[in-house]
Write a protein that binds this DNA or RNA. Structure first.
Lengths: 159, 159
DNA sequence: GGTGAAACTTCTAATAA
DNA sequence: TTATTAGAAGTTTCACC
């Protein structure tokens, strides 16, 4: 796989699409003083290179009734069970991310649940997975997301 | 703010847009046997209700040279410093999410860095924030994201 | 590489049901 | 609320720089 090098135009295109994936290519073209065809070709190239993996909606989970966030650290009986436990975690829809980690825990995951009662059920479900020795839960009282653009600007050396 | 109730059509529209925000409304319309105008009106309603907060790209951060992920638990000298420290964390682009948590740590955040050397610098920067007493780092050896659709299907009682 | 224009597709808002 | 429709707008391709 040849290393794909993004230039300033690519960066600016990404920058606009990160904010709004449905922004018309013609708008991007106007702002960057290039043609819509060029925007199209460059986006396609970044997709083909796998840099753009896709697009998704930002949803308000609170409004959808899922306002409970927690992190759960998992201790395994044996690290050989890691893969199996990860697979089982991925079948629980309320587990949004799972990591194999160094340090205290063997596995570390993030939960999104309806409320404390619901979270309890999910944590019990995790405790019940074969190979899970015990878990430790941290409840999020407030989540603050950093703007993706900050990281992108850093990546592009534009901070 | 009146409670906004989504019906099955709304769910299916979200379902398709979660996978690809640029899917033409005419395609959605065809699949759901409704008109493109209806899709348009419903999406607009969900945007107005704040359920759809926006859209963004899924990027391959590994390909962009940021393949290091870690979680950092922060102990504060005093909880009154929480807000200040959170604000400072949000100025570090490599801190992608921060939470105020119950349990062991006062604040808990996620890092995305270039490599271990770079992560070290970021962690030192966190340690240097006024009010931070000490930190504890967990390095992610492997991240596994659960499909957003799983949670949505659960929200819509379709599992 | 990029452009500009043509052909095609999609969006959107007004109207009608 | 939803469907239809038609003009406006956007996308994509391609011959040519």
């Amino acid at each position: 796989m040849a290393k794909f090098k993004l230039d300033e135009i690519d960066h600016q295109i990404l920058d606009m699409l990160i904010d709004n994936t449905r922004i018309p290519f013609t708008d991007i073209a106007k702002k960057l003083l290039i043609s819509a065809g060029t925007v199209h070709v460059r986006v396609k190239k970044m997709e083909d290179a796998g840099i753009i993996k896709g697009s998704s909606l930002k949803l308000d989970y609170n409004k959808l009734g899922y306002s409970f966030i927690a992190y759960v650290g998992i201790f395994l009986q044996n690290t050989s069970q890691t893969k199996f436990v990860l697979e089982r975690l991925n079948t629980i829809p309320y587990v949004t991310v799972a990591h194999i980690t160094t340090g205290k825990f063997n596995i570390f995951c993030k939960l999104r649940a309806k409320n404390t009662q619901h979270a309890k059920e999910v944590i019990f479900k995790i405790d019940d997975i074969d190979g899970v020795y015990r878990t430790e839960t941290m409840i999020s009282l407030e989540e603050s997301l950093n703007d993706k653009k900050r990281l992108m600007h850093d990546i592009f050396n534009r901070m």
